[in-house]
């Protein structure tokens, strides 16, 4: 259980200070996997580092499992931290990397060996234990970093854009793997990401941050279907603006004939994306919007660039006045 109350952190000189975190209060349920989602500069990494104790907040408190740790150094918080660029100990082997936290805790050698072998088995690096980090791929390094963080049996596991430096395929694999790992270890986990798909994919709950403030907290689906404001709506998925309302492009209905409440628009481009078809539209006096149709719908409509159409969103589940 992580409880943050009224955490504020500013950087820079007094007159030119910018707030990385502005009065952030948050609860992370025990055993959950929570994502901190936001654009760069939203304060999500700073928040994670405040939980870890790597940054001290200007005001506010951090409580881990009922203990106020605001003034406690990171060494004694019992946290596991995984960095975007692995932070591998280059001169130590995989096994020594994983053993690091146990060695500084002066565990007996035999116990360390046992625990390290167990962890390497968990992350699937048993065959690599005597290699150096430079001999591993990015994905393997990050799994080593995770094993290293888990070795000390942390109360909370903090992941700072852990897949940010990896390519798309490895990212997707590791995401699924992390999900399974979390089910197995059940440690309270907080993951920082700027990738909404990643957040929706792996987490139980998502905290959306923007300019140092919490915009919304909820289940992935809740955030997508009922965003609290235009920012959350825009950050979690594509948005179309129809007659002063924001809707999801897949809720936009395009028809060849005028209908009640429909707005006139001109087709600018029709993009075929496999099963989906994206229709880019120019609305009369209202700027651009895009609609997402199935291939079948698009074929039935038979539209091409330059055609006049009527658009509406009568059944839209997600609507924000904007």
């Amino acid at each position: 259980m992580i409880t943050l109350s009224h955490v504020t952190k500013r950087y820079g000189e007094r007159d030119r200070a910018f707030a990385a975190l502005e009065d952030v209060s948050l609860e992370v349920a025990p055993g959950s996997l929570t994502s901190l989602l936001g654009p760069s500069g939203s304060g999500k990494s700073t928040l994670l580092r405040v939980i870890a104790g790597l940054e001290a907040p200007d005001s506010g408190t951090v409580i881990l499992d009922g203990v106020d740790v605001t003034g406690v150094p990171p060494q004694r918080r019992g946290i596991g931290f995984v960095f975007q660029h692995y932070a591998a100990f280059k001169r130590l082997t995989v096994r020594e990397n994983v053993a690091f936290g146990l060695r500084v805790r002066k565990w007996p050698k035999a116990l360390i060996r046992e625990r390290v072998d167990e962890l390497l088995d968990l992350v699937g690096l048993t065959g690599y234990r005597d290699r150096y980090p430079s001999q591993l791929s990015g994905g393997q390094r990050q799994r080593m970093a995770l094993a290293r963080a888990l070795a000390i049996e942390p109360k909370v596991l903090l992941l700072d854009e852990p897949f940010g430096a990896l390519d798309a395929k490895v990212r997707a694999d590791l995401r699924a793997w992390l999900r399974r790992l979390h089910e197995e270890v059940e440690v309270t986990t907080v993951l920082v990401t700027h990738d909404q798909e990643e957040a929706m994919d792996v987490s139980d709950r998502i905290v959306v941050l923007n300019e140092g403030r919490v915009e919304q907290v909820g289940l992935p689906r809740e955030l997508y279907d009922r965003p609290a404001n235009a920012f959350v709506m825009g950050f979690l998925g594509p948005v179309a603006r129809l007659g002063g309302r924001l809707v999801r492009p897949h809720d936009v209905v395009v028809s060849a004939e005028p209908a009640d409440g429909a707005a006139e628009a001109r087709v600018e481009r029709v993009v075929h994306l496999g099963f989906e078809v994206r229709v880019e539209l120019r609305l009369a006096g209202d700027g651009g919007a895009s609609a997402q149709l199935t291939r079948q719908e698009a074929e039935e409509l038979g539209i091409s660039p330059g055609d006049a159409v009527w658009v509406s969103a009568p059944t839209a589940r997600t609507v924000i006045a904007g």
Binding site: P74, Q75, R77, I79, F81, F83, V104, A145
Partner: peptide, 23 residues
């Protein structure tokens, strides 16, 4: 980053210096 990692793993400033920074 490696120094911070060592810190979060429980290493004291001296342990971090001797085992990570100095090498």
């Amino acid at each position: 980053e490696a120094e911070q990692a060592a810190t979060t793993l429980g290493a004291s400033p001296w342990q971090t210096f001797r085992r990570i920074t100095l090498p």
